[in-house]
Write a protein that binds this DNA or RNA. Sequence first.
DNA 1: GTCTATATGGAGATAGAC
DNA 2: GTCTATCTCCATATAGAC
Lengths: 219, 219
Amino acid sequence: MTLTAKAEETRERILDAALRLFRERGFDETTMRDIAAEAEVATGAAYYYFRSKEELVVAFYVRTAEEAREIVPKILGRSGDLRKRLRALIDLKLKQFADDRRLLLAIARIGVDPSHSLSPFAKETEPMRSESIDSFRQAVDGSDARISRDLQKDLPQLLWLYQMGILLYWIFDESPGQMRTLKLLDGTLDIVVRLIQISSLPLMGPLRKRLLSVVRAIS
Amino acid sequence: MTLTAKAEETRERILDAALRLFRERGFDETTMRDIAAEAEVATGAAYYYFRSKEELVVAFYVRTAEEAREIVPKILGRSGDLRKRLRALIDLKLKQFADDRRLLLAIARIGVDPSHSLSPFAKETEPMRSESIDSFRQAVDGSDARISRDLQKDLPQLLWLYQMGILLYWIFDESPGQMRTLKLLDGTLDIVVRLIQISSLPLMGPLRKRLLSVVRAIS
DNA sequence: GTCTATATGGAGATAGAC
DNA sequence: GTCTATCTCCATATAGAC
């Protein structure tokens, strides 16, 4: 998988050409022929580096994940408040994708099919997924919220799922400045944090255990 | 939109041929040429009646919705228990689609894109959607559960959304007999009903109001 | 209105040049 | 290993026959 310098340059040229065209005219409106022409290679060359058009979008997604790796520790250092920490993580993602929001539509189409190898839920994308889940683990563990031990184990995954839901809503949110998503985020994040606290009360043990056993049975 | 008898027969022949082939070899593996050939018409004829391959799946979906219209009142007559009533509605859908579960994958791909005219969330499919939501309204209204008035208004839509989530999970559930979905249903339905009851307590007014205001802001 | 014959344009595959 | 030229197959469009 290690590429020569020349190959690496060709690959980057194709990816850049693709992202440029996707931004200009949209994913569906851009053909692989267009991309190859823009990068000044034959169509087959584009397929040599990216097995499908969707894989170009995934490559973009991977780029942002690499960026995030460096940023996450910084933004988590700012506060111990769980709500703020979660908000920081989600805001980062939204910011990273802000200019290419519609592009994620292509990923969303794949995303609903977990058997597709490029789905965020597929085995093949496990490394990226667990890295993302792990950032939620950091957000939880480093916070000053008191969370029952059993919940603490599965919470990061649940929060990641919550983030995916928010992202999905955002992708299709055509309200000005996507303010509907911001409202959704404002409203639900508050509820989520409150539910975490409520369900961590000893009184809530039975309901919490039931919920967690369902979560474990299906995931 | 009223078809002559002959046209109606052709349309049915094409739809039946399509569903037969979809079942035999799957949606992606069946081409419009295959379908037209199986129905003994030209490719264009298939497109005359169905604007796209997906529309054939939607036609199937509409068939089951028509069936359901007669069955729903019967199954809701059997018990006043909210949990049982909701379970009956969801079980019906699962039963109706049981033999063509994988076919719904084609709808799921569309489904995530609310701007697609065939999405269950699109304006164009509003009649079907509201009929389905209305069956949940019947399930709630006719039950013996005590539900706060404000929640009662939005609850049917929320329950419909819950059902869509279950269906989505089921479509991709490859466990034997889809028992994972049944576990998910068993576990979550219990929690859902309990949450409805808990949140209807006067004590929960503020949290409930916050939740409902979010729901209204985004839908 | 109902349908056939034929055309178009794109995703992806492949043989083989270098 | 990198890449070009060319091919196949399909969804969908369209002109026009009946």
